Amino acid sequence: MELVQETDKILEFIRQNKKKFENALLTEASNVRDKIEDILRFGNIDLVNNAHKLVGYIVEGRDQELQSFAKQEGIAWATHELTLSFKLEWVQAIRRTLWDFLKEYNEVAKEIALEEFFLLEKKINSSIDQFLNIFFINYSTYKDSLIKAQRELVENLSVPIIPITPSICILPLIGSVDTFRTNVIEEKVLMEIGKLRIQKLIMDLSGIAEMENQVIEHLMKIIDGSAMMGCQTVITGLRAEVVRKMIHLGFKFDKNTKTLGTLQQALNQYLIN
């Protein structure tokens, strides 16, 4: 009997014993079993129905559908941040359950010749391995893209350069400023000065109460770098705690850097007058 005809009969045998297959699968995947409802609720992923779909693609040799399904699953699991160990356990449970049913089918039908069995073994295991490979590649790729997008969003929110005229921008800094954030500030400020042709950058520090010594030093260098690109920096809202630290460290702004008490004073001076 040809392998194609054999796989059709195997798939029909599994479909006729659908409930038995599901029960055997849930027994194999003991850790995933209790998470099925949660995965359906949070990720809208029906593991049981998807298992039947995967088995169909594998047994019938529908490689294109298998690859598309693996990609779809990888992206879905990455999007909803579902645990990879559950997916691996589930697919391996599908593999074991499928082989148990092949054994049971052959005991009933006694139609699989030895040569056909080895061909079937190679075909099924290769398909499952291919599914896992494509799943993990797409999971990793999409996860990396999500992380990159989130990081870029955080960086843009943490360094919000706001144009108020064609040549004047405001950079309000709020919250804590550490070494990582000053690196982001440096990159964003210098890039935006070049791109927007900023001539005056109003850097408001009223939202920052505490800065480490190296952070203050880095901000001074950013101001110097801005001046080298033809942009004057106006500092507003320096708090007493920061000023005291700058005095003790011997830091002072160059003669071209202006300081004003509040952002409102800067806006009044550069926008109204």
Rank of each mutant, 00 (worst) to 15 (best):
Ile58Tyr: 02
Lys110Leu: 15
Val59His: 04
Trp77Glu: 00
Asn50Gln: 08
Ile94Arg: 00
Ser127Met: 02
Glu121Arg: 15
Lys188Val: 13
Val215Cys: 08
Asn213Thr: 10
Asn17Ile: 12
Lys195Pro: 07
Glu116Phe: 06
Asn31Cys: 10
Leu190Asp: 09
Val32Ala: 07
Gly74Asp: 00
Arg151Phe: 04
Gln232Val: 05
Met228Trp: 07
Leu3Trp: 03
Ile170Val: 12
Glu210Asp: 06
Arg244Val: 06
His52Ser: 13
Thr179Pro: 09
Gln72Arg: 15
Gln16His: 12
Ile124His: 05
Gly74Glu: 01
Lys122Glu: 14
Ala209Gly: 12
Ser145Gln: 14
Gln269Ser: 10
Val243Met: 05
Asn106Arg: 09
Ile75Gly: 02
Ile170Thr: 02
Ser176Tyr: 08
Leu238Cys: 11
Asp8Asn: 13
Glu212His: 13
Met203Asn: 02
Lys103Ser: 14
Ala149Asn: 11
Ser176Asp: 13
Lys143Ala: 11
Ile235Asn: 03
Leu47Lys: 09
Ile58Arg: 05
Val159Tyr: 03
Leu54Met: 14
Glu89Trp: 05
Ile10Ala: 01
Glu155Trp: 08
Lys53Ala: 14
Ile14Trp: 09
Leu40Pro: 05
Phe117Leu: 15
Leu171Asp: 06
Ile168Phe: 09
Ile124Phe: 08
Val91Ser: 04
Asn50Pro: 10
Phe131Thr: 07
Ala109Leu: 03
Asp34Lys: 13
Phe117Ala: 14
Asp254Asn: 14
Cys169Trp: 02
Leu88Tyr: 04
Thr259Ile: 09
Val108Arg: 14
Met211Pro: 01
Thr257Pro: 06
Gln214Gly: 11
Gly261Ala: 12
